[in-house]
Design a protein around this nucleic acid. Structure first.
Lengths: 134, 134
DNA sequence: GTCCTTGCAAATGGTTTGCAGTGCC
DNA sequence: GGCACTGCAAACCATTTGCAAGGAC
């Protein structure tokens, strides 16, 4: 049975993740962690993040060709995401105001570990102005 | 104003996409298209797929470090996806049995072009057997 | 004829991996 | 002391891009 060890590196990654609400990517997290532990490698950050995702502690927002963004699941703060295809900005969307009723329609025997509801689109800054220059 | 041209390559990509219900990735589509048009390049397939996604004709299922899967939106067949983290299999989930009620909670001015509901988890084949060998 | 598209191939860049040394339990 | 974890750097591979030639309108 796999034994998970507590290390300085992992604590640092978790702390950085909990402290930020900007859905950071691995490189940014790496930079922050290095502020305290200068020799931590990107590889370790990725390995730690993978473990956190597997444990369900952290959610991901994945986009092809772009860095995965990580989202720490704060207690009792369920939310979904609105992702701008233009600038990549990610907005939180309150889950309570966006109810989703999973009924029995999943493949038999499928074990759900995470439900993702993502709204893809364009944020105000990236929406073409209807009334401006061409 | 941008003018979109009809080309043999684009028609082929669309046809392949419409004919398959297996959520193929770009490489697979490329292989199929080459069956008819041997010189079509992967780059062209990607460019065409990008255009189709922008037009809302095709949906994507994106996973970090793995090929994006493309899903042609067949008429009146709204569905969500269940994605296995083990083998990468993608199952369709009927949208009607999985209602999702978007209320006004999105960022003001955010233009939604696509709503994604994804169930991440493990399919029966990838679920650790509770009663088998260690 | 214009200029959007394509093919090719090289570049990009996020993520993964092998390995030898390190340190948690 | 065993073995999970780490740092480093190289490897991977999906995706993007530059450019000259080709084709749709």
């Amino acid at each position: 049975m796999t034994m998970v060890r507590q290390t300085r590196q992992r604590q640092a990654v978790i702390e950085v993740l909990r402290a930020s609400r900007e859905h950071p990517d691995a490189a940014w997290i790496h930079g922050q962690v290095r502020g305290r532990l200068p020799h931590v490698s990107l590889g370790t950050v990725y390995r730690t993040l993978d473990a956190l995702v597997r444990d369900g502690v952290v959610l991901t927002i994945e986009r092809a060709g772009q860095a995965t963004r990580y989202d720490y699941r704060h207690e009792g703060e369920d939310h979904h995401h609105a992702v701008c295809r233009g600038c990549g900005a990610i907005f939180d969307v309150d889950a309570e105001a966006m109810p989703c009723i999973p009924v029995a329609a999943l493949p038999p025997g499928f074990q759900v570990t995470e439900v993702r509801l993502e709204f893809m689109g364009l944020c105000p800054d990236c929406t073409p102005q209807p009334n401006a220059e061409s």
